[in-house]
Design a protein around this nucleic acid. Structure first.
Length: 648
RNA sequence: GCUGCUGUAGCUCAGAGGUAGAGCACUCCCUUGGUAAGGGAGAGGUCGAGAGUUCGAUUCUCUCCAGCAGCACCA
């Protein structure tokens, strides 16, 4: 048999007879390597050690020290071991798929009875038993027919469907550990004992549609996390606990920012603290936008269906709209109105008042527009996904030639705003023309080029999402990652060739003829609600002074200091700071603790020493100690710090 | 919308077929204490809503509403 040549990662070459397996190579290199090996890479592709080598290649043996490969295998094998455990415990369960995901894995099952949280512990126990068996993992290539026949016998309808989905000509691979068998592309570990028995945990059960389609039956998905060792698992669970602590819903309650109640699902009741935060952010955005050439407007929230029919929303978006019908008893005429789900049609109405010249363009109309959308009940989530919200919306009416400059201008604004608010990193997604679209290819060419060139000119990284643009134009989406690692699409920038035409927007060009302007829909924060949710989690409630709803509490240590406390509060307020007095009959320890828990950034403690010296003892949130400073000095320092970034 | 779970005092949660309990918060009293909980007393609940079973339901059953996790959705 002819030899094949393997190039190892260190550059050395070794020759073996064709038909040698990865494991045999490992054994040939060293006995200990054979023992610690978990998988191999053949020309960069991750494979089982049992893979038969049949050609010259770059070859590498992986051990548990190779994080990427080790974690992939551990998690994937965990999914299989879980599936086996479940089928051993409840043989009537049908298996489907079980992929690796961030930090772990899941497996989707079909079973008449629901898995309970208590079942998870039972399954975990069974999984440990399987791991302890150290069952060797065996694999074979099967023909399509044989696989289908097998799954018909074992009554696994989902697996039969999967076989049907695998492209013709591709091999089907079967895996076994013990008697348990599954269709899988692999690779897998050498034996079940290689999965660390103390580094995985089953986390939750939830429904998931078969193949992600809501027309399909719902399966039961069990989620698990798995790591290389117990410490990594512990660290991950700890991270989850920390993430839970900064959940904006929890902080919203603790910091008395807002609440949502049954009578108005998905609508926010802002409390004084939360509304202060909201207003500080809104005032900041308003200044930034006006400085950038926007004009602020305000448009109606309840608008006759005729406008929504004209804009196309009635046809395309009706199921997400709140419709209001006027009570016939009180109306002469029956009208059907909708709460606006978007501001754009109203903005065109403002644009349409009076004839516009090309000299008026670009015309930037901004509105903190209150919108309502009927979101499905299961999709709502605190402030992140609500039914009533306010966008920092604006529409730029411009010529096609102006798209590029406006794009660049907007991205610059957005970058500055995100930086000011503590987000240094965001991703840009550039979505190009979909198959079904309005407008000529020439117009799309021009718009796509304008958007892309703007990103390039600013030297920002972006990724292109071909075909994901709206039917009316290409778009840019701006995504932030929050503290819990979730990605939120906040900012957006969309070119629109359709709506201005539908709603008869026009301008007189240099040539004296009427033209249709391009409309650029854009939002920086997206909605105040969602953005504040992200902001709360990003700062874990510990806002920089300029954003903090409660900035300073001045607390007396003894009641003889109360008058001076009130004087200090007055001085701080006069300097435009948000300050409160705490002259309750409580110990300073108690006051410090309470205001620290409430995440007030600055506590000024006042005892008789401070009264006499006309000073204050300043404690910053999170600090252990305090600093004594002259009153005037503190006012000046805090005032500077509390100045919004755009006014510094 | 779908699957599962949950809904008891302002908050976090315990509880049982015979109309309820803890801690914190709140009110009052004592305490004037120097940087993350001083002590005592008191008040506070139609046990998410409706229907059914039962002598009796907050507890069991059903329906609805809301929340949570995930899925689907987010033109």
């Amino acid at each position: 048999m002819a030899d094949i040549s393997l190039t190892l990662p260190d550059g050395n070459k070794r020759s073996y007879p064709t038909g040698t397996t990865g494991l045999e190579v490992a054994a040939d290199i060293s006995k200990s390597l054979a023992k610690s090996a978990i998988s191999c890479s053949i020309d960069g592709a991750h494979r089982d050690l049992s893979t038969v080598l049949s050609a010259d290649c770059d070859f590498a043996i992986h051990t548990m020290k190779d994080d990427a490969q080790a974690l992939e295998l551990i998690r994937h094998d965990c999914a299989h071991i879980m599936a086996r455990a479940v089928q051993e415990l409840w043989p009537d369960t049908k298996v489907t798929i079980g992929p690796v995901i961030a930090n772990g894995f899941y497996y989707d099952f079909d079973r008449a009875e629901a898995f309970s949280v208590e079942d998870l512990a039972v399954i975990e126990k069974k999984m440990r038993e399987i791991i302890n068996l150290r069952d060797p993992v065996r694999t074979e290539l099967w023909s399509r027919e044989r696989a289908i026949k097998y799954f018909q016998n074992t009554e696994e309808p989902f697996k039969i469907e999967l076989v049907g989905m695998i492209p013709k000509g591709e091999d089907l691979r079967m895996y076994w550990h013990g008697k348990w068998q599954d269709l899988c592309r692999g690779p897998h570990l050498v034996h079940t004992g290689q999965v660390p028995a103390d580094a995985f945990k089953l986390m939750s059960v939830a429904g998931a549609y078969w193949r992600g389609d809501s027309n399909n039956p719902m399966l039961q998905r069990i989620y698990g996390v798995a790591f290389k060792n117990k410490n990594d698992l512990k660290a991950h669970l700890h991270m989850l606990e920390e993430a839970e602590k900064r959940d904006h819903r929890k902080l919203g309650r603790e910091m008395d920012l807002f609440h949502i109640q049954e009578e108005a699902p998905g609508m926010v009741f802002w409390h004084p603290n939360g509304w202060t935060l909201y207003r500080v952010l809104q005032d900041y955005m308003r200044r930034r936008q006006i400085a950038d050439g926007y004009q602020e407007i305000n448009t109606p929230q309840v608008v006759d269906r005729k406008l929504w029919e004209a804009s196309g929303h009635w046809e395309k978006y009706r199921e997400n709209m709140f419709i209001t019908e006027i009570d016939e008893e009180h109306a002469n005429e029956k009208r059907v109105n909708a709460l606006k789900p978007m501001n754009c049609p109203c903005h065109v109405q403002v644009y349409n008042q009076g004839l516009k010249s090309y000299r008026d363009l670009p015309l930037r109309l901004a509105e903190f527009g209150s919108c309502h959308r009927y979101e499905s009940s299961g999709s709502m989530h605190g402030l992140m996904r609500v039914r009533g919200f306010t966008q920092d919306d604006a529409h730029i009416f411009c010529t096609r030639a102006q798209i590029g400059a406006e794009t660049k201008k907007f991205i610059e604004l957005l970058t500055r705003v995100y930086q000011d608010l503590g987000f240094d990193k965001f991703e840009i997604k550039f979505s190009t023309r979909p198959d079904v679209r309005a407008g000529s290819d020439a117009v799309w060419d021009q718009a796509e080029e304008a958007l892309e060139n703007a990103i390039k000119a600013l030297d920002l990284p972006y990724e292109t999402d071909p075909g994901e643009g709206a039917f009316y134009g290409p778009k840019l989406d701006f995504k932030l990652t929050d503290a819990i690692g979730r990605e939120w699409q906040l900012g957006t920038f969309q070119a629109d060739f359709v709506l201005p035409e539908r709603l008869d927007a026009e301008y007189i060009g240099e040539d004296g003829a009427k033209h249709t302007p391009v409309m650029l829909h854009r939002a920086t924060l997206g909605s105040f609600e969602r953005f504040l949710g992200v902001l709360i989690e990003n700062y874990a409630g510990r806002f920089p002074l300029w954003l903090a709803p409660r900035q300073i509490v001045v607390a007396s240590i003894v009641s003889d200091a109360d008058d001076y406390v009130l004087e200090v509060v007055a001085a701080l307020k006069a300097a435009g700071l948000r300050a409160e007095a705490d002259i309750r009959n409580e110990k300073i320890n108690y006051k410090v603790r309470e205001h620290s828990v409430a995440k007030v950034p600055v506590i000024l403690a006042i005892g008789m020493k401070e009264v006499e010296a006309r000073s204050v003892s300043m404690r910053r949130l999170g600090d252990k100690g305090s600093k004594v400073l002259a009153l005037g000095e503190v006012v000046e320092q805090l005032q500077a710090e509390a100045t919004p970034p755009d006014l510094r």
